[in-house]
Design a protein around this nucleic acid. Sequence first.
RNA 1: GGUCUCGUGGCCGAGAGGCUUAGGCAAAGGUCUGCAAAACCUUCUACAGCGGUUCGAAUCCGCUCGAGACCUCCA
Length: 493
Amino acid sequence: MEKKIQLYNSISRQKEEFKPIHDTHVGMYVCGPTVYSDVHLGNCRTFISFDIIFRYLKFIGYKVRYVRNITDVGHLLDDGEDRILKGARLQQLEPMEVVQKYTNGFHAMMRIFNTEEPSIEPRATGHIVEQIEMVQQIIDNGYAYEANGSVYFDTLKFAQSTGEYGKLSGRVIEELVAESRDNLKNQDEKRHPSDFAIWMKAAPEHIMKWNSPWSIGFPGWHLECSAMSTKYLGTHFDIHGGGNDLKFPHHENEIAQNIGSCGCHPAKYWLHTNMLLLNGKKMSKSDGNTISPLELFSGDSVHISQGYSPMVVKFFMLQAHYSAPLDLTDEGLQAAEKGFKRLMEASKILSKLQGLNAGKGSLDEEMIGLADAALTEMSDDFSTPKALAKLFELVPKINSLGDGKLSLNDVSDTALDHVRQSFHGLIFDVFGLKDEQAGENNAVDGLMNLILSIRQKARANKDWPTSDEIRDGLKAAGIVVKDSKDGSSWTYE
RNA sequence: GGUCUCGUGGCCGAGAGGCUUAGGCAAAGGUCUGCAAAACCUUCUACAGCGGUUCGAAUCCGCUCGAGACCUCCA
């Protein structure tokens, strides 16, 4: 690969050069959602971030296998009830109906945000056999013990003999003793408070349960990711990602399970996305400081003054680095909406520009430089904000070329092609943005051409009332007319 | 309470020891325009506070204040 990527590895706590295990192929695993309710907006940020990483790696030539799971069993609530089962009980649905319902909703939302589908999207319940095998391996290696039909991971023994526990999250096993609460389920069956269940015996009324060597039960949360990443990416793969709230215990325990079962570190690079805040505070349903994606789109929320389209929301997210917290505010969204439109307009103008057929233009070097710089910024830990900044530096050039303030004699067509490739490549192929206003409607184009030509005649005759009537009427219909020296153009508001 | 992260101009957000006025939005002035919008040009120079290290700090260290994450379900 020509591009050298630097990325921040959570486990080493520093930026490293990305060197894939296999030259041209990259394996990436991202912890997907637990499908027990509508997808959270913060979730969307995480998956959009990894979608862009996936797309960028492909864009620069890697073959990427991107695995993102669906967790549909084993993820328990505080009181020990399975999240899926609680959803089923409350909505009077079969557990798998709950799973299907919210999986569908999640997929629909990912499509709305124009993300690509992962290469493989495995489900926890589809990999019970693999999980049972992994539990057995861990027991065989002496890092787990059975108690009452449940199996627990022996964190103390693992920590003492491998020294691996706590590396990712920076935790020390001794401290976990004092910190661990004692009101968790089956605390008495554990040898150590920080031990965690990898197989749980099911109560008789529990619906989702499977036969195993230890009991009729279900796998522990964390185990599904260990089992499925191993199955589809191997025991050691390139990138493991997720939200940073999963660092502990989820990812820490995942690492323990992988090392405990096969002796290998699952991932070379750990990437963590940061939280999305609303008005400077954590989103929280209980105090009303929350907004759903659909409310954001419709504007039906006290936190925003209007609706924002999915691409505006996505653009807003791209203006911040994935590893930094991002504060969602109405003002911020409004700024993003304008910026996004400006970028899209420039992109449209860029498609139509034609420069010199031969030779070099005086603007060539600068424009190519900015376009290349935008791509290079992405190699620095996938910095979408820096890449966007470079693209925005190109915007005045593009607009000036478009309306004649800069001469097309000063730029070569080869240079424009080069710029187009990077500009459009980044915006559409890597960021996965799309022009929501792009009318693929020939009838509208035809009508607008007709209307604008009538107005042009009125203007030529200095018939301002007619000219303004047309412009005002169109404005009322949501269409903005822009006059320039060589005619008028239009765009949706 | 413990572990960790962060605090940048009117707002959002990059940067991470000495040239970046990063970028977006807003605001002001100007060019263009029948008017307007758009576009273009120009202006607005900040790094929570207090100490310290250094020739030099927004960038390193300490303390204070504030925010957030994890420890307990969460991306």
